[in-house]
Nucleic acid binder design. Structure first.
Length: 269
DNA sequence: ATTGCTTCCTGAGCGC
DNA sequence: TGCGCTCAGGAAGCAA
């Protein structure tokens, strides 16, 4: 569910609300939510010293050299709560701070996970990620190299986290629409010019979506339990009619819905 | 190595 | 009202 802009919005909110707070306890309301979780009789977690994002992962580091690596998957939410007596509807885990505030991990479909690591640990899930699309080293040359010998549709390749970290179904649909590329076009058949358009539009769409605090189609909320605004600017995802007047097509690719306009996104080009 | 299919789980929305 | 079906923004794990 949450993709790069939504995760970045959550990270921004966490930096505002919980940075520096001392963790006095962590609870797991649903078994399996927290991995590598050892609740020692006296386990000191420390205070939150750094909060960052890598792909769709949220990374919270503590003064005791712990790293919480959090993935929200489809329906995960991190909600900051001033009044810890209030319980969230699908609360799966929570962090209680010394000042009696609380960070709730709420996740309807329970796909989300919190992994606990020591600072020295190798974190495999992060190591296999591809480049950050908003970084300077994410270029058309890089993508061209990655798309060589790839016959899979461009839609699938853009969803592949080991190529680009952070894109999901909504933004891939939007990027391909804005770049005027058919989602069914094979990766190795794209011209350098088209690949360049993908890079430009990826940076453009993501930057704009972050500015509007992400896209809320259904579940996504920020740490204040508020919706994002970018859904107002979507051009194809979930749409019936294109701005050109044609009908938007809806097909299945890699098991998920692809929305695109056959007239604006021609396979032959 | 690459590709695609299945699976994890809950809830909303639809047609009957 | 209620049942059963399909769908949902992710990605690991597996088979071909």
């Amino acid at each position: 569910m949450p993709e790069l802009p939504e995760v970045q919005t959550v990270v921004n909110g966490l930096n505002e609300k919980v940075l520096g707070k001392n963790i006095i306890s962590i609870f797991e309301d649903r078994k399996g939510t927290i991995q590598n979780f050892v609740q020692e009789p006296i386990c000191e977690f420390g205070s939150i010293s750094k909060i960052s994002r890598r792909g769709k992962f949220i990374i919270m580091e503590t003064s005791k050299d712990l790293k919480f690596v959090i993935h929200l998957r489809m329906t995960g939410k991190l909600i900051f709560e001033k009044y810890p007596e209030r319980k969230s509807t699908h609360e799966r885990a929570n962090f209680i701070f010394e000042d009696k505030t609380k960070l709730i991990f709420d996740d309807t479909r329970t796909f989300g996970k919190i992994q606990i690591y020591q600072k020295k640990d190798k974190i495999e899930s992060l190591e296999k990620l591809g480049l950050e699309p908003l970084s300077d080293n994410f270029t058309s040359e890089y993508l061209k190299l990655k798309f060589e010998n790839r016959q899979a549709p461009i839609k699938n390749l853009l969803l592949n986290q080991s190529i680009i970290a952070g894109l999901g179904n909504i933004y891939v649909c939007e990027i391909l629409f804005r770049a005027k590329i058919s989602p069914q076009k094979q990766g190795n058949k794209l011209s350098f010019k088209k690949i360049d358009m993908i890079v430009i539009k990826t940076k453009e769409v993501l930057t704009e979506a972050i500015k509007y605090n992400g896209t809320s189609i259904s579940d996504y909320r920020n740490v204040d339990n508020k919706s994002g605004e970018f859904q107002k600017f979507l051009k194809v995802y979930g749409k019936k009619t294109c701005e050109c007047g044609s009908d938007i097509c809806k097909i299945k690719q890699a098991g998920r819905s692809t929305y695109f306009c056959e007239k604006c996104q021609k396979i032959g080009e």
